[in-house]
Design a protein around this nucleic acid. Structure first.
Lengths: 146, 146
DNA sequence: ATAATGTAGATGCAATTGCATATATATCGG
DNA sequence: CCGATATATATGCAATTGCATCTACATTAT
């Protein structure tokens, strides 16, 4: 490895910190979800993207881009959400290969119920550890890596 | 949910950014590992902790604390590393419940070989996107969440 | 029109993870 | 010393993930 490819100490600390912070906060949040008897954390993102979207519907590939889920994982996550009645698949008329994923009323209700745990959990595990200015600065820096 | 539990916009952006940045960079790095024909990314951390440790050995619970791996996941990860000859388990004399995990020469060599891909990968996906000062600031902020 | 290529999404199968619990000590209170 | 409790690690099993590939339809070039 040539010298210029070697990460600087600060870069390495940033990357290791990113992994550790994410794991640590995520596992704390997942613990809160479990304690509240909620479905898996990962369901939230998909439901939220659908709720935000016009008509509560998105194509799978759109959800994929927004959530960074792998295609095959999303496909099966939709299966599970559908089995729970939180979303339903509908035909996409203009292209018979595709489909819509539509959030149901139960899905909207579940999203809202999850937020009641999720919101405070974010506050506890992130907000309480940083000032407003720090949170802003962190968000700005992280957006450079997305 | 009471008002005070609701995360601020900056806190939420920080958390969402943390998830997205970690997923995005991790998946880019994993792609580099695969392209180089290396074993799974997760093996690196364990090997590295062992190489850093005195005598190249640690107790499983010590690795667990350093890597944030779940106990049952680490137990089976050690199985896999052992099967590849990268580590070996040795008896821990003072407490028959425990064991040592010792990195082998092959394990040290593999760690070094992985770094040849990993180092440049960190540089490419993290270092190149931030100035030194930004990387430092990011590391400092992230350390507050660990 | 047709063959080649591209895209959306699903799926079989093996590997990994999570959960609950097991196993084998160790330690502690009486 | 003895039973109760705690600790270190392993493991059976179900759920999830990753990989490779499949199906079905769409688009493009000839």
């Amino acid at each position: 490895m040539t010298k210029s490819d070697e990460p600087t100490a600060a870069t390495t600390r940033a990357w290791v910190g990113l992994m550790r912070a994410q794991r640590s906060v995520l596992s704390a949040i997942e613990k809160d979800f479990k304690a509240a008897g909620l479905p898996p954390f990962g369901w939230y993102d998909v439901l939220w993207e659908l709720v935000k979207a016009e008509d509560g519907r998105l194509r799978p590939f759109e959800i994929e881009a927004r959530t960074l889920l792998a295609q095959y994982n999303l496909s099966r996550l939709i299966d599970r959400l559908e089995k729970e009645g939180l979303v339903r698949r509908e035909a996409f008329e203009e292209d018979a290969r595709g489909c819509w994923v539509v959030v149901t009323e139960a899905g909207r209700a579940m999203r809202a119920r999850m937020w009641e745990t999720y919101g405070p959990s974010i506050t506890r595990h992130v907000g309480r550890r940083l000032s407003e200015a720090e949170a802003s600065a962190l968000a700005a820096l992280l957006s450079r890596l997305g």
